[in-house]
């Protein structure tokens, strides 16, 4: 990033290779839509490209990229909500965006695993965005509490609380599923 901010255009490919896999993984988990994730990753990297001249020497790139991606997810969701309200005809396609894609089970244990996965996903999707992102950053991306707090623009204790609420909600799903089976 340092070289790229100085105008070395070829360094963008290296930057892409360094951050894109992790960023795309985060976006896929956050959106559950490969096309949306790829689109958001492209937008995130273009935002980084546009702001390369403002890069602070020595600053970490990943928290910045995650924060931009998260902002784009939130803005996109808001925009879709508005569009859905305005154009009810086009809402079918949009409404399906970010919904989990189910697959036909092949065996009983696979059916059970699929159901459990779907329930966890549904519960994760139903969580407030701040709780869901805190969970994804800590559990899926393996970030530290401090790193997640920096990306979310809040305190470490707030991240702990959000993640804790997400864990409680997900544990409840597991408990319910266990009782039913």
């Amino acid at each position: 990033m340092e070289r790229y901010s100085h105008g070395e255009d070829a360094a963008f490919a290296e930057l892409y290779d360094a951050i894109a896999p992790r960023l795309l993984g985060f976006l896929r988990k956050a959106t559950r839509d490969d096309f949306a994730a790829e689109d958001l990753m492209q937008q995130t990297l273009l935002q980084i490209h546009r702001a390369r001249g403002t890069f602070i020497p020595g600053a970490r790139v990943m928290p910045w990229a995650f924060a931009i991606a998260r902002r784009l997810i939130i803005d996109g969701a808001r925009r879709r909500r508005v569009e859905r309200r305005l154009f009810s005809d086009t809402s079918v396609d949009d409404a399906e965006t970010y919904e989990p894609v189910g697959e036909m089970p092949t065996a009983d244990d696979l059916v059970h695993a699929r159901r459990l996965e779907q329930r966890v996903r549904e519960r994760l999707d139903a969580l407030p965005e701040v709780q869901r992102t805190a969970y994804l950053l800590l559990q899926q991306e393996g970030l530290s509490l401090k790193g997640a707090a920096e990306i979310l623009g809040t305190s470490v204790s707030a991240v702990k609380l959000r993640a804790h609420r997400a864990y409680v909600a997900l544990r409840a799903v597991l408990r319910e599923t266990g009782e039913q089976s």
Binding site: S5, H6, G7, F12, Q42, L46, R50, R52, G53
Partner: peptide, 12 residues
């Protein structure tokens, strides 16, 4: 897409 869009360098 990045190559097609001009972006200022740090000096600029």
């Amino acid at each position: 897409a990045a190559a097609a869009e001009e972006s200022p360098t740090r000096a600029q």
